[in-house]
Design a binder for these strands. Structure first.
Lengths: 210, 210
DNA sequence: TACCCTATACTGCAGCCTGCAGTAAAGTCA
DNA sequence: TGACTTTACTGCAGGCTGCAGTATAGGGTA
């Protein structure tokens, strides 16, 4: 029985459609370019091209370039067909795991200090990604996109990232102000401020812009 | 060798610290209350309490209530200690999987119509969660929080969700306008509009509010 | 009272995915 | 020529998911 194509298979297949790659190149290019859209481990990315060959979506051949032989993968017509079928299926719902939010939800097991630390951690993690994307955009301006004809897609994708990061950073500031008002993490319950907040949220108003 | 406690273990343990639960209750309560913070499958949530017992973080005893016997789990002192140790460790960086964004990144394999469909799917998925949270806030106003003394935590958590959902919905509108300008999904590259966008992003300006 | 259907309360298993440890050849510097 | 680093992977334990399957309790009906 052949393996089943997963979303990760299509992600790698889409890269293969741009040009042929060696296994190593493909894996590392995938880590770079999919990191924000579909983050997968190096380990998985190494096994995907093999699966694609088994599925008939790619071929592999040894290329002798100089001293070292390299295993080169190339997409097949069947692979291109599978790709365009994929674009017409229903997408999976988004899946987000943010441990910092889990900690917030159970922050009454620790101190206000612990919770502030959690918010700092989140800020650091988001900040790193935020900076990286801004720098990437700078490099695009200098003509640094590896597939210039696809710049519009990367940039529209980047607007999503930047918007997310900015929202999260704004929320972190808001959350810091909010917990400053709490005597401890425990037993604040439905105090005045929280009730006002709840009321705004129940009317689907943004509590951050006032 | 005892199993290792994962973040999911602590998530379930934190629920156990609120009150004793039966396995079924615990699993289903966890699905409800962790859905947005730490989404895990029913299957996993069923096996976590057993792991907690093995780790000495919880005890289990059979309770004969009426016709049916129920397996009741309770947290131990060792479990409470493990919980408070967890709150002092570094959080995992956020992990987000949004297939719709992956599709966007490779939208040149399909038509503009396909891409619009992808944005519609994303809007539907986000909209469902968005609505559910707004309704939940309404129920909190009516005194519907199962642990009233913890309302401040749930509500601060909810502000994060609502902010995220609103940002994503705003971005979807923006993206729709943007792709309306494209003749096809392919070869737009660094056109005028995209260059302006890239310039704004490279200066870390929000491209959505103008 | 026997029968059937639904809700409650789980378990086993295949298979995806991750992190880590390990391997081995090619390049690089002393 | 030896030691170290970089390139280029593989194997494996174990976390996690979806799905199929099991078993009992309660409730309606013929």
């Amino acid at each position: 029985m052949p393996p089943r194509a997963t979303i990760s298979s299509y992600a790698v297949l889409a890269l293969l459609d741009l040009k042929p790659w060696t296994g190593y190149e493909l894996t590392h290019q995938a880590q770079r370019s999919l990191r924000y859209a579909w983050p997968k481990s190096e380990r998985l990315l190494y096994s995907e091209p093999k699966k694609l060959v088994e599925l008939g979506y790619a071929t592999t051949h040894i290329e002798e370039t100089g001293s070292r032989s390299r295993n080169v993968y190339e997409i097949t017509d069947k692979g291109r067909e599978a790709l365009s079928e994929w674009t017409r299926t229903r997408t999976q719902p988004p899946h987000m795991e943010i441990e910092a939010l889990l900690r917030l939800l159970f922050a009454d097991h620790g101190t206000i200090e612990d919770l502030r630390g959690t918010l700092d951690d989140l800020e650091t993690d988001i900040g790193e990604h935020h900076e990286a994307i801004v720098e990437l955009m700078g490099s695009y301006l200098d003509g640094g996109h590896p597939f210039p004809e696809r710049t519009h897609l990367s940039v529209l994708f980047a607007t999503f990232q930047i918007e997310m990061f900015k929202s999260i950073e704004r929320w972190i500031e808001f959350a810091r102000d909010e917990i400053e008002q709490w005597p401890t993490t425990k037993d604040v319950g439905m105090a005045e401020r929280t009730e006002m907040l709840t009321r705004r949220l129940a009317h689907d108003e943004s509590p951050l812009d006032d």
